[in-house]
Amino acid sequence: MMKETDMYEALKKHFEDMGFKVRSEVRDIDVVALKDDLLVGIEMKRGLTIELLVQAALRQKTCDLVYLAVPRPRRIVKDKSMNNMLYLLKRMELGLLYVDVEKNTVTEVCPPAFYDLDKGRRAKMKEKLRILKEVSRRSVDGNKGGSRGKKLLTAYREDSLRAVALIKVRGVISPKELKALGIKETLLSKNYYNWFVKVDHGKYALNGVEPSHEEYGMLVEQFRNEYISEDILK
């Protein structure tokens, strides 16, 4: 099994080739590289772990730049998990080095550059607006945090369930009636869940394929009671 110390020679060569003076095990830092007044700390581990991230973050107290060094994977896969890790490293302003012990080479995967948080947030503004819109459109909290592989009660599904409840109260409804509730008029015609059927010009009813009573029965009944109360008050 490869040891962390096996990566040292490749790291030493990598930084010395760039004009750094390299020393190992300096005041609890695995590797230190010095060039002029630039102090670089490198922490080595056999894999990317929370422990390694913590160590690297602590080194940022004293070093100008900090790298994490891990063995080069046999297969480099840029999947979601890896992209998320790279994002975390960028947010933490940490660099990542892949060390190929057999070839005695080092590849810089991610530089320890300054992360512009405001720029990052601006780039994700559209996604933030989508989140805000989704939250504002949900009138109930019908999901459990941490759920995986289950149908989620999205704002669109809630709107569809409200349409089902309204039809149960009024028999048939029109797109304009949905619009009055703040629901998109096209929900009935798009009929994403196949719960509705057009029975006349601008009129829709239930087609017999209703949402699961076990999953949404209580919610439909809650919405139905709301609309019954509203109709009585009119």
Rank of each mutant, 00 (worst) to 15 (best):
A113M: 08
N84G: 06
T107E: 13
Y98N: 04
D100C: 07
K119W: 01
R170E: 10
I131Y: 07
I131G: 00
L187A: 04
H201P: 00
V66L: 06
E177Q: 07
H201E: 14
E127T: 08
L88N: 13
N83H: 06
N84Q: 11
S147G: 00
P112L: 13
I173T: 05
Y87C: 00
E177N: 01
R91A: 14
R91W: 09
A123S: 14
L181N: 11
R148Y: 15
R122S: 10
D159P: 03
V99Y: 08
Y98M: 04
A113W: 02
V66K: 12
R122V: 01
L97R: 07
N83K: 13
A113V: 04
R162H: 14
R91C: 14
D100G: 06
V70G: 01
Y193Q: 11
R74M: 07
N83I: 05
L65F: 12
P71Y: 14
L65C: 06
I183G: 09
K90P: 00
S136Y: 12
R170D: 05
A165S: 11
K176D: 13
D116C: 06
K198V: 01
T186M: 02
E185T: 08
E127M: 10
E93P: 08
K126I: 09
L88F: 13
V66G: 06
R157I: 11
V197Q: 11
M82W: 15
E158W: 11
L88Q: 14
D141P: 01
T62E: 03
C110P: 00
C63R: 15
V70R: 06
K176G: 14
Y192N: 11
R72T: 15
D141F: 15
V109N: 06
L153Q: 05
Y67P: 00
V106Q: 03
D116P: 08
S160T: 14
V140D: 03
R75D: 13
L132Q: 11
A69N: 06
V66Y: 09
I183Q: 10
K103N: 10
N191K: 02
I76W: 08
A123L: 14
R170P: 01
F114P: 06
E177T: 03
P73Y: 11
L132R: 11
K151E: 14
E177D: 01
I183W: 10
K103D: 08
V197I: 05
R137T: 01
V197C: 02
F196M: 03
K190M: 02
E177I: 02
V199L: 02
D200H: 08
K144E: 12
C110R: 11
H201D: 12
N84M: 09
V109R: 09
Y115D: 10
K119G: 00
S174Y: 12
V199T: 13
S139D: 09
G182D: 05
E127P: 00
V109C: 04
W195T: 01
R170T: 05
K103G: 02
N104T: 07
G149I: 00
K203W: 14
L94R: 14
K126E: 13
G182W: 09
L188C: 05
Y193L: 05
A180L: 14
D64Y: 08
L89Q: 06
R72A: 14
L129E: 10
V99N: 05
K144Y: 15
H201V: 11
E108V: 13
L181F: 12
P73M: 07
P112D: 10
N191M: 00
C63E: 09
N104W: 00
V77H: 12
G145F: 15
G171P: 07
L88E: 13
Y193D: 07
N104S: 08
K61W: 05
E177R: 03
